[in-house]
Design a protein around this nucleic acid. Structure first.
Lengths: 117, 117
DNA sequence: TTGACATATGCCTACTAAGGTATATTCCGT
DNA sequence: ACGGAATATACCTTAGTAGGCATATGTCAA
């Protein structure tokens, strides 16, 4: 039952924030740190949790790790992420995360080169 | 953040089955036992878990407790339950639960009187 | 009031999870 | 080969969860 793995991932606020950001597109760890304002170890551990349960993928890019939603996510994940979007539309924390993400967007666009952290 | 309470409730298989049945209508504990085929204490504890987090309501009816979804469920709950329905449509256990529920339906209809367990 | 039935609760054990601190790993540039 | 940056992991503590067994509570019927 994959569903349960998914719900387990969804029942932590930090992980919800990570997944929410990821549904806008791939991101590297330092951007998560910057947007969430949480310590590196916390972010890294939650990403590991998501990775082990295959809710996210990652790929090394030089010094950094770029995290993304799976290329072909299972139906249940897609459904739940879109339900999540619906549910949090008005939650301040998620709005704030999104706002911060948009501020970083220009940097990220050119990030093949550097411009990280 | 109510959402997290909801996801916490959703990350156990027994509770998913309970909620799934409840979205068809109210049920008493002994029917859950019969349908799920799980021990009374297990069912009862999971119902208590759901009750404490306000995902279900209950009402005494003589000797029995009738459980139901909240009269006016929060948006997030409705959304997630309908997402759940979507996701499990083809899962055998849930189909089987549903089939068993339908077999009980006649009994339940006349259950104001007795015909329980 | 007693007994039987339906349901809930207490206590125990094993497991998982979250967060923190310290340390390891991996890659880059020099 | 070395130092620094980005990220991951080990280990610890605390707290929450699941399930089982035994027992308690509440309600009815006689």
């Amino acid at each position: 039952m994959d569903l349960i793995r998914i719900y387990q991932c969804l029942c932590d606020r930090t992980r919800l924030r990570l997944l929410h950001l990821l549904s806008q597109g791939p991101l590297c760890v330092c951007h998560f740190q910057e947007i969430l304002g949480e310590p590196q170890v916390k972010i890294s551990k939650h990403l590991a949790y998501l990775r082990e349960r295959e809710l996210v993928q990652c790929e090394r890019q030089g010094n950094r790790m770029i995290y993304a939603l799976p290329a072909r996510p299972p139906r249940e994940l897609t459904a739940n992420l879109s339900c999540l979007q619906d549910c949090i539309r008005e939650e301040p924390i998620f709005q704030r995360d999104l706002a911060r993400l948009r501020k970083l967007a220009p940097k990220i666009a050119g990030s093949d080169s550097e411009a990280c952290c």
